[in-house]
Design a protein around this nucleic acid. Structure first.
Length: 636
RNA sequence: GCCCCGGUAGCUCAGUUGGAUAGAGCACGCGCCUUCUAAGCGCGUGGUCGGCGGUUCGAAUCCGCCCCGGGGUGCCA
């Protein structure tokens, strides 16, 4: 069996093995001129060379070379051993560019530079403006996308790492929703097993008031239970073959730990057997833990709620079936009393059952894979879990492929991907601490962001000329929160997800430069122009585009790429492409804003045409920000 | 030991999957608000793309070796 690439989206040979239903196959956006150029040059290449080949249409890197460049001639000439410039000339000669290009020429080693006609760009833009999906074509793959996100554990505080798993997952889910896919957001919470039972047992022993439990109480009980049941020294004494006296000493010392563990195991048995009283208390534990998640989700504008909870407990009755299936198919074997799935290409097997008969997280994950592909109909299952679990997911996915669980109910092949995001580090390259030395919780960060955002918005609103001047305090706080959260989300999502980053509160909650608020600001400026114009949306929609100025044309060409960008994010799962696109869009709008007066345009027709350009830019900017779950206020 | 991921301007990072002269943001220097929001815009300073070799019309990007940093590596999740 050939080795399976760990990052299938970057290896072309893997793409070729993907079935026709794979999410990597996408239709081309109709409003993007590159689509038409691709078709025409593909035909020209076929006519000249007799082969079907990607013409490699790319937006020009430099406006002086035109709007698009065709890069295929160089590579094709190499294959055929001919002169690349001559081949480019031939392709250009046989290309039918009627109604599309006003200028085409061969340049450099064999580039074909294409300048679109103004009518072509305007007609594409008109198509885009009329599209309900912002030019994004309907999906070819009818199956669902499953996103495993958030991943909190019961009785534990959400820390900054959960921020990434939550907002990255939510953003991907939003992208796939924009792509027209059915999306399942799965919160695979850690709500089952001995650690939970330990916490539960401790709370019961301490006669805790379950009706008034706080997350801090839970967290305290969890840590206390961990400490209480720890027999680390004793285990070490056995390991190191200490003398009988020393071991006897430890035995006495650890008697309470044994008792606590016994209690926890009894509680676990009661929980597993469905004892109504224990189950009720367990559900309360989950509820208290999840309240913080729902609150953070509200603050972050992330679509994660109670309906997304499908934790380890959900799969508890399916674990024995997992072992059975692997045993019966001969894929698992007994090794040192445990059940393992060996792999052909590596030493380390995947452990799916402990020697004491207990199940492991790999067992649950295998059950979850099966559920997500077969029952949720996922042809793409993305696990947004930190990068340290790369080996684990590689093993789980390979095991799933061996047994054939990477298939939907109708037999379509599913792509299983672990999107391993990097760690969030403090300035000392260690887990983040606050000034007081406590672990920095997610709530601390979000509170700080909202506070700073509100302070900034309030400060600016004091200026009598500010659009926000005179707004009530609660309105300013709402805008402030949107600004602060935008800063946090953009800072995280606009970089390479797989890389670690050093957490710096000040740069994460910055409002100037390459930030979320920069994009919101561009949006608010456009909204302000539209509001001041006095024109109805209908009147603007009925107007025609008139792309006369270079700044207008550059903005328009970028707008036309929105759909392709979104498709690219769906294909690569690289959320930073959204940020890059939007930053460029805002920059192009700012250049337009600088050089092209809208409300004071020379004539009414130009005014209306520019208003229409503003309207579509505003709509794309807002929709793009919504892919990050960032709110775009009309005033700030 | 083995496996995985990184290394780009003083700092934080992009780089459209091998394309034309490597780009932003912070920071620093200068300029632009009686004109649609200055959270903005323009100009300037700043580079051995970790190192060496290879592949080719063309490499930050692909391949090989080395250096540095981080992570993972059988009964926790």
């Amino acid at each position: 069996m050939p080795p399976i690439p760990s990052h299938p989206f970057r290896t072309p040979e893997f793409d070729m093995t993907l079935p026709a239903t794979s999410h990597t196959l996408s239709p081309r956006p109709a409003c993007d001129p590159a689509t038409e150029l691709d078709a025409r040059f593909r035909a020209a290449i076929r006519a000249v060379t007799g082969v079907e080949s990607d013409p490699q249409i790319r937006p020009s890197g430099n406006a002086k070379f035109g709007d698009f460049q065709v890069n295929a001639a160089m590579a094709l000439a190499k294959e055929r051993g001919t002169n690349p410039r001559a081949l480019a000339e031939e392709i250009l000669k046989s290309a039918d560019l009627a109604g599309i290009a006003e200028k085409c020429e061969v340049a450099g080693p064999g580039f074909i530079n294409v300048t679109l006609t103004r009518a072509c760009t305007e007609s594409c833009l008109t198509k885009l403006a009329a599209s309900e999906t912002f030019g994004v074509p309907a999906p070819m793959d009818p199956h669902a996308v499953v996103v495993d996100l958030c991943g909190v554990n019961v009785a534990k505080q959400m820390h900054v790492g959960h921020l990434r798993a939550t907002i990255i997952g939510d953003s991907l889910a939003r992208v796939f929703e924009r792509l027209g896919r059915k999306v399942w957001r799965e919160n695979h919470l850690g709500d089952w097993g001995l650690p939970i039972a330990m916490t539960l047992a401790k709370l019961i022993r301490e006669r805790a008031d379950f009706a008034r439990l706080s997350l801090d109480d839970l967290n305290h009980a969890y840590r206390g239970a961990q400490k209480e049941t720890s027999t680390a020294d004793l285990d070490a004494a056995y390991e190191n073959h200490c003398g009988p006296h020393r071991i006897a000493e430890f035995e006495i010392q650890y008697e309470p730990a044994r008792a606590a563990m016994e209690d926890a195991k009894k509680t676990l048995v009661r929980l597993q057997s469905g004892d109504p009283e224990i189950v009720r208390l367990w559900e309360r534990l989950i509820e208290v833990t999840m309240e913080q998640v729902y609150e953070a989700a509200r603050t972050l504008n992330v679509k994660v709620g109670r309906e997304n909870n499908r934790g380890e407990s959900f799969f508890r009755d399916r674990l024995a079936g997992v072992i059975d299936a692997f045993a019966k198919s001969g894929l698992a074997k007994s090794d040192r009393g445990a059940m393992v799935v060996p792999f052909a290409d590596r030493e380390r097997p995947l452990l799916i059952q402990k020697s004491d008969g207990g199940f492991l997280y790999a067992t649950t994950d295998l059950a979850a894979v099966r559920f997500r592909t077969f029952e949720l109909d996922g042809s793409l299952v993305v696990y947004v879990v930190d990068a340290r679990q790369r080996d684990h997911f590689k093993d789980v996915f390979d095991a799933a492929r061996l047994i054939g669980w990477n298939k939907t109910a109708d037999g379509a092949e599913s792509t299983l991907v672990h999107l391993g995001f990097g760690a969030v580090l403090g300035p000392d390259k260690k887990p983040l601490k606050t000034r007081s030395g406590e672990n920095f919780t997610l709530k601390d960060l979000l509170d700080e962001a909202c506070e700073r955002g509100t302070a900034e918005v309030t400060r600016r609103a004091a200026d009598p000329n500010a659009p926000t001047h005179g707004l009530p305090a609660d309105e300013l706080a709402k805008i402030g929160a949107a600004v602060g959260i935008a800063a946090v989300k953009y800072a995280d999502l606009s970089g390479d997800l797989t890389k670690d980053y050093v957490f710096d509160l000040d740069s994460m909650i910055a409002f100037e430069g390459d930030t979320g608020p920069y994009l919101q600001y561009a949006h608010a400026r456009i909204a302000s122009i539209l509001a001041k114009s006095g024109e109805s949306p209908a009147a603007i929609a009925a107007a025609s585009f008139a792309l006369a100025e270079p700044a207008e044309k550059a903005l328009a060409l970028h707008l036309l790429r929105y759909a392709q960008m979104t498709l690219d994010v769906g294909r690569t799962l690289e959320t930073n492409r959204v940020g890059l696109y939007l930053r460029t869009l805002a920059e192009l709008f700012n250049a337009f804003y600088q050089s092209c007066p809208v409300l004071k345009a020379d004539d009414p027709a130009t005014r209306l045409a520019r208003l229409k350009l503003c309207a579509i830019t505003r709509a794309i900017l807002a929709d793009g920000l919504s892919l990050y779950g960032i709110v775009a206020p009309d005033r700030m």
